[in-house]
Design a protein around this nucleic acid. Structure first.
Length: 339
DNA sequence: GATATTTGACCAGC
DNA sequence: GCTGGTCAAATATC
């Protein structure tokens, strides 16, 4: 690979980063505008009229569309990988990924075509392990929770690591749907030293997997599409906007009780909870030392600009179908991309 | 047998 | 060179 190619990739990455930053900023402004307008409308309606039940506010609708557009654009750019040397999003269901580690189902590009079927533990497979392209930057956000399964997505643990200067190991989870749908969402869970009853959960990337709308509504307690980097105030704004939102899913979590992985893991149950429909006690993905605790409070602290905001969570989402259709429109090369 | 977890190895980024 | 993120064979569980 020559230096010109590297320079081009570097430039592309910078451009993408700048575009994302601009979009995030624009999104933030739009959110603030939405709050402002909704506040004004709220006062207006209170003073003069009543909103007919079920009749959507056109301002809110419009703002929601604007925000959705921002989120879509951000998602597309966030999934753009300059290293892939193609100008298309790399998250395409069932497609191969140029970054070898990103799609474990199709890693052949890592090892010169090794199918992986005859891998030995060491030696023979040398050069295969750890072969991946680490995401230099992806949208991340951190929550603090007493349970690691509070988001109710289906996660599969793929690693655990001792981290320097930390008492407890960090566990790595990826979306269960990664092999089948290429969902790139991951999360890292680490028990807090100060309070071992609490877990710091860092989410990385957005879910692109498809779940039913009903499931989606019940299993996405907070917005994977809106909350960007931990230093972004957008999420804080939105969090405040939704501070009084629905808390039913949290109550269902509270009622879930202590469930260890081994306890609920019976065949078909796995499928159920993998689909994210686990609201009846089979939802936990808990590793050996990640036990749940008395959960009467069950709140989460969202960190924005280093400040914690305690809130219940019920945000708006980027709909996965929207995302897919977006890819369709943005990605004319789908399926034929030269990864 | 199928699926999930564990854990040592490998590699990218700093 | 060190650290952290990911891979994948081995192992565990159902």
């Amino acid at each position: 690979m020559d230096s010109n190619s590297n320079n081009t990739k570097s430039i592309k990455r910078k451009v993408v980063d700048q575009l994302v930053d601009q979009l995030v900023e624009g999104c933030e402004f739009a959110t603030q505008l939405q709050l402002l307008l909704s506040h004004q409308h709220s006062n207006h309606h209170t003073d003069q009229t009543r909103i007919v039940s079920g009749d959507p506010d056109p301002v809110d609708e419009l703002m929601a569309k604007i925000l959705a557009s921002f989120h879509k654009a951000i998602s597309v750019l966030d999934s753009f990988d300059p290293a892939a040397n193609v100008s298309v999003p790399i998250v395409v269901e069932g497609s191969r990924n140029a970054s070898c580690g990103d799609d474990s189902a199709t890693p052949a590009s890592c090892n010169g075509g090794d199918s992986g079927e005859s891998r030995k533990r060491l030696g023979v497979g040398k050069g295969k392990r750890g072969c991946y392209t680490r995401k230099k930057r992806s949208h991340t956000w951190t929550v603090e929770a007493r349970r690691i399964d509070e988001d109710k997505y289906a996660w599969r643990k793929y690693g655990q690591k001792e981290i320097l200067n930390t008492k407890f190991p960090r566990s790595y989870f990826r979306c269960t749907h990664k092999p089948t749908q290429g969902c790139k969402a991951t999360k890292q869970v680490q028990k807090k030293e100060q309070d071992p009853n609490m877990f710091q959960i860092t989410y990385i990337g957005y879910h692109t997997c498809h779940v039913s709308e009903e499931t989606q509504a019940n299993t996405e307690p907070f917005d994977h599409g809106i909350t960007m980097d931990s230093d972004n105030t957008l999420a804080a704004t939105i969090a405040q906007d939704h501070v009084n939102a629905n808390t039913q899913e949290q109550e269902s979590l509270i009622g879930a009780g202590v469930v260890k992985e081994e306890d609920h893991n019976s065949g078909d149950q796995n499928k159920d909870y993998c689909e994210g429909s686990s609201t009846n006690g089979d939802l936990s993905l808990v590793w050996q030392d990640a036990m749940m605790f008395d959960d009467h409070q069950h709140h989460q602290n969202y960190y924005y600009r280093g400040e914690a905001i305690t809130t219940s969570h019920q945000f708006a989402f980027i709909d996965n179908d929207q995302l897919s259709s977006l890819f369709d429109s943005y990605c004319p090369y789908e399926g034929t991309s030269a990864m």
